[in-house]
Design a protein around this nucleic acid. Structure first.
Length: 515
DNA sequence: CGCGACCGCCCTATGGCGGTCGCGGTGCCATAGT
């Protein structure tokens, strides 16, 4: 950073620029890319925080052509992997493969048998822990160990997807290739957590601003869900679309999609983790293709989505952390045009995140019971699936069941069960307090009486450079002002919009009658 | 934590009320059994 390049380094960069032109057709690196690539080519561990859409993938793709060996990319979602593989195929790269559980076992073996022909290999953290995979990979040279969407390490590794916490061990087993961790959102605590979990050494940080100056922000405090729906309808008839509505629960995504479709006639769909993979793919594609005006979804939607013209991100319920919030609103207006992020907040909404935090961990009674049964040999860790099912039968969530499994399995023989209990308790208390702290930061944002942007920037140790015209509700932004600055274009269902004004009038007449 | 679904109670009606209980969001992979 700021230091002068030596001859060797400038030579590498010249080569990198050559690849960028030849393979990807770009003349210049975008902000951040060159710095990351330079550090990667010099063999350093790099932590990069770059906004989505800034060309994160170039940062490992270009080095892939200059370094000897395989670029291994750890990717959190199978659908994302699929997209990433296709993108590389589109530029004519044949030596790119994914390795995951959806593949036929035979095909998987074939990939492992011909690793030397591969330049880019996409893989899930779970697959990476398989013996056969690890053995095969340890026999070849890896040029780079990329952790894509690296916030998952911190967000999911400690409970939801524990395999994320084994990446450091795996990397060391694979001869410690240089590591590139990339994400769009990680505050300082999350960054430290990622660096520690991945065991990054002498790490170079490339941190770009998280400020999305073209997204106006607002928090709208209400009393009830009914009021939210009313406000949402009003909003949707005034501002530009397409948009996303984030809800805390699956049921709400379906309910809101229904209401919007009926009341406003907008092309609306819902999306959540309870749906079949094919349906999810279908809805995602429809949204990307511009066949939908609005998508109501849980936090299942969004990772790896790069649709440039999303104009609106609504939070019908607030997310559990500021990182998640930034991640979600950051999906708006990637094309640089003006966008809007509006959050509806009712105090009772807090029960969602509180409930989620609770469901992540076993309660004391279950924990004690399970440990006693393990001690007496009534339960066995050797049969993982049986163990997990047994815990879930007693009311533990899948995550809580796995929490016990992961934390008990490596306990040394000499340890007695009451001290294991205390160890687990300690860990639960720690993790819970981390999550409660993040929630309380989120609540501070919601209740903030100063500039929203200044607040979230301060969470990332940044400060605001200059005042924006369309900043946030605390800086005087009103829906009317926003509407004036960004009038709804009439190409989105004008007849239904008119229809809605008539219906709104009818609703008001009806409610007057009720009073 | 707090919601909504469900149950049982009231004691002669098909409803309303209060208590209890379970659930809630994110996704990999395996393996057993057809």
């Amino acid at each position: 950073m700021g230091r002068l390049m030596n001859d060797h380094e400038s030579d590498l960069i010249a080569q990198a620029r050559d690849i960028l032109k030849k393979k990807f057709g770009y003349d210049q690196f975008r902000s951040g890319q060159q710095q990351v690539i330079q550090e990667v080519l010099s063999g350093h561990d790099v932590f990069a925080m770059m906004p989505t859409g800034s060309g994160k993938s170039i940062c490992y793709e270009v080095p892939g052509y200059l370094l000897e060996g395989i670029v291994l990319i750890i990717s959190p979602l199978l659908s994302l992997m699929e997209d990433q593989v296709n993108q590389l195929r589109e530029i004519g790269e044949k030596n790119v493969r994914a390795l995951n559980g959806l593949m036929h076992p035979e095909e998987r073996s074939r990939v492992l048998a011909h690793l030397r022909d591969i330049r880019f290999l996409f893989i899930s953290p779970e697959m990476l822990r398989q013996h056969s995979v690890l053995t095969a990979l340890s026999r070849v040279k890896l040029s780079l160990f990329v952790v894509d969407e690296a916030h998952c390490v911190s967000q999911w590794g400690h409970d939801f997807r524990p395999d994320y916490l084994y990446l450091a061990e795996i990397r060391s087993h694979l001869g410690n290739p240089a590591c590139l961790a990339v994400t769009a959102t990680a505050d300082e605590r999350v960054r430290e957590d990622i660096v520690r979990s991945l065991d990054l050494r002498a790490v170079n940080y490339v941190l770009m601003s998280v400020d999305r100056r073209n997204i106006a922000l607002a928090v709208h405090k209400v009393k009830s869900s009914e009021e939210k729906i009313e406000e949402l309808c009003k909003l949707l008839s005034k501002v530009q679309l397409p948009g996303i509505v984030y809800c805390a629960g699956r049921d709400w995504t379906e309910k809101i999609a229904d209401i919007i479709r009926q009341k406003l006639g907008l092309r609306t769909a819902f999306y959540h983790g309870g749906m079949e993979a094919v349906d999810r793919r279908k809805i995602q594609n429809q949204f990307l293709d511009g066949q939908l005006d609005l998508l109501c979804c849980t936090n299942a939607f969004g990772m790896g989505i790069n649709k440039p013209d999303i104009r609106l991100v609504v939070h019908f319920h607030f997310p559990a952390t500021m990182n998640a919030y930034l991640q979600e609103i950051g999906r708006a207006s990637r094309d640089g045009k003006q966008g809007l992020a509006i959050l509806y907040y009712a105090e009772q909404d807090e029960h969602y995140p509180l409930g989620f935090i609770d469901a992540n961990f076993p309660d004391d009674t279950l924990l004690r019971q399970v440990l006693r049964e393990l001690d007496q040999g009534l339960l066995k860790l050797e049969k993982k699936e049986t163990f997990l099912t047994s815990l879930q039968d007693r009311g533990a969530s899948e995550t809580a069941a796995r929490f016990i499994f992961e934390n008990v399995r490596f306990v040394t023989r000499g340890m007695n069960y009451s001290s294991i209990f205390e160890e687990c308790r300690k860990k639960i208390t720690e993790r819970r307090s981390v999550q409660l702290n993040e929630l309380s930061m989120m609540k501070r944002y919601l209740n903030s009486t100063t500039c929203r942007r200044a607040f979230y920037l301060s969470v990332y140790n940044e400060s605001q450079s200059e005042k924006l015209d369309l900043c946030c509700d605390q800086c005087g932004l009103s829906l009317e002002a926003f509407e004036r600055a960004c009038p709804q274009t009439s190409d989105v269902h004008p007849e239904q919009t008119l229809d809605w004004h008539q219906r709104l009038a009818t609703i008001f007449r009806e409610s007057e009658r009720d009073i």
